[in-house]
């Protein structure tokens, strides 16, 4: 019986358990227009990768707690000191000093608006979002950058006010734990597992 790949860290080393890959047989590819002659072979690949969030881990951990963290350059020597980033940047892109992690939850709740958006019927393999997907790019007061995310309720429109929701029940610990809804959305309209934080 196979078991999902699991990883923990101990003494700053990864400890692996479970199955990280599955072996499936190669299958011949045959040309039906030419007497079924061999043209190639399938190469099944099913692997689980391990990935470190590094200095961004705090952002992904806090989504599950209903918080949005960004970062700010506080280096007084920096030409652009005080610049606030969301998406989170571990280091200032100008001076490369380590940024200060800051809680932007309130700014996100009060000033988020849609900069642009797109509604997509198609997805790539491994997608877990419901279709049509409503991607939105969100701007915030006092934040230098724009955040890419998705709208879970209603139809997006440029300039529309939105507020964040969080997958606080069974979080995925990915960017998908953060989503957005129109500002007048009520609690009972939220998708399963999501809350206002």
């Amino acid at each position: 019986m196979s078991k999902f790949a699991q990883v923990t860290v101990k003494n700053n080393r990864y400890i692996f358990s479970g199955d990280f890959h599955h072996i499936c047989p190669n299958q011949p590819i045959r040309d039906l227009d030419n007497n079924g002659r061999l043209t190639g072979i399938t190469n099944p690949r099913d692997m689980t990768y391990v990935h470190s969030y590094g200095g961004e881990a705090v952002f992904f951990e806090n989504l599950s707690r209903g918080k949005i963290h960004g970062s700010r350059c506080d280096n007084p020597e920096c030409e652009f000191t005080g610049t606030v980033y969301l998406p989170f940047r571990i280091h200032c892109p100008d001076c490369l000093a380590k940024n200060t992690v800051i809680d932007l939850t309130d700014i996100c709740k009060t000033s988020a608006r849609i900069h642009t958006f797109m509604v997509c019927e198609r997805s790539g393999a491994f997608n877990t979002l419901a279709k049509p997907m409503k991607f939105i790019n969100i701007e915030f007061d006092g934040v230098a950058t724009i955040l890419m995310s998705y709208l879970s309720v209603g139809e997006p429109r440029i300039g529309m006010r939105v507020k964040p929701i969080f997958k606080t029940t069974d979080p995925t610990y990915t960017i998908l734990d953060l989503s957005w809804v129109p500002e007048d959305t009520q609690k009972n309209q939220l998708p399963p597992g999501f809350s206002f934080g």
């Binding site: 797109m118 991607f135 890419m148 990915t174």
Partner: peptide, 18 residues
């Protein structure tokens, strides 16, 4: 891969917002 790819796994989408 942390901030964009999980969003639909479709590059066209990242273009389409533009």
């Amino acid at each position: 891969k942390d901030w964009e790819t999980p969003l639909g796994h479709i590059y066209t989408g990242y273009y389409a917002v533009m």
